[in-house]
Design a protein around this nucleic acid. Structure first.
Lengths: 190, 190
DNA sequence: GTCTATAGAATGATAGAC
DNA sequence: GTCTATCATTCTATAGAC
């Protein structure tokens, strides 16, 4: 039973890593299978809808991982302002050593697939909304009104995704740090 | 002579459109040729370094087009604050009718290629820096000090790129409009 | 149920005819 | 110089052996 589960787990783990690092179209099923050690038949046994299903589940897994990471970051501090600073600094550090980068949020996959696959677009949309809800709830706790809270939540997603792209091109986490500073101005204490 | 130039021009125009809409790996050379009407031999005659060279020149062309668009937007207004609002609103409108979208800035290509091609990464980096220099110069004109101006310039790039991704996933330009509002707060008058 | 072998199409690239 | 025909490779997906 463990072996069975491991096969599916291994395929999904390899897929998640490669999809988020290289993108949807740059990642072949053969590469995923080679890295996971599983044969091709297993992939279509566990993921009968092929590449699209594999990508959907990979995004969901990554989404959940980031959700937990954000949640933990926010829980360490009384305000969103402080928590988000901590989270972004951790993110920035990943981009300083670009060679060791082994995962990043879903922006690349979202951009690649939003125009060609409704299931993948919806998965990405739900991910963003789940993260934004974490920000939103924390802002409500911090006595922001609902309208401001929901505005700032979307802003944070945009800022982080854009800064990730910009950091990737710069080969360092400095753009993320610029964003971190700006968020201080954007999230005014109530 | 016109025919010669047209062949190269047509290939590049089709490539620029498809690369920016679909991404680097999702766009095949055959698709580019089919859309441009040119035969495959011509592509390798005009772009001997193949797909990578074609993408480089496509990004440079798109970069220049956006540069002019930003420049014109800023020239219409006395302050960066007002000019950038105008530019972003124009951008947002493109995402409201997602089916008619026929080009968007370079974020997707940048994310796809920054880890696998130094020439493409450098082309993207130069594009971002050229746009940021427009913002920077306008801010200096508006009497911002150099440090603030350079910080805000990078911020704007990150915000716009992130909001484009977010708008793509939402299938409307609202995230871009949220960003537009926030920029009012982030660019404080001096 | 697990996996091998392969189909069928598309990819980027090239050689060589005209 | 311009373009056609084809290369080897890789892609996703499937049929069928065990």
């Amino acid at each position: 039973m463990d072996a069975k589960l491991d096969s599916k787990t291994n395929i999904l783990a390899a897929a998640a890593r490669l999809f988020h690092l290289q993108g949807y179209h740059a990642t072949g099923l053969n590469q995923i299978l080679k890295e996971s050690g599983a044969p091709k038949g297993s992939l279509y046994y566990y993921f009968p809808n092929g590449k699209e299903q594999l990508a959907t589940e990979a995004i969901e897994q990554m989404s959940e991982r980031i959700y937990v990471e954000i949640k933990n970051s926010l829980n360490n501090f009384p305000t969103l302002k402080e928590g988000i600073q901590f989270y972004i600094e951790k993110l920035a550090q990943k981009f300083d050593k670009i060679d060791e980068l082994e995962s990043m949020p879903i922006g690349l996959l979202a951009s690649e697939t939003s125009l060609i696959s409704e299931p993948l677009r919806n998965t990405c949309l739900r991910s963003y909304q789940k993260w934004e809800d974490l920000y939103y709830q924390k802002l409500i706790e911090n006595h922001f009104d609902s309208k401001d809270a929901s505005h700032i939540s979307v802003m944070i997603t945009c800022l982080i995704e854009g800064a990730i792209t910009r950091s990737l091109v710069s080969h360092n986490g400095n753009p993320l740090r610029e964003v971190r500073i700006s968020l201080n101005k954007l999230i005014e204490e109530k």
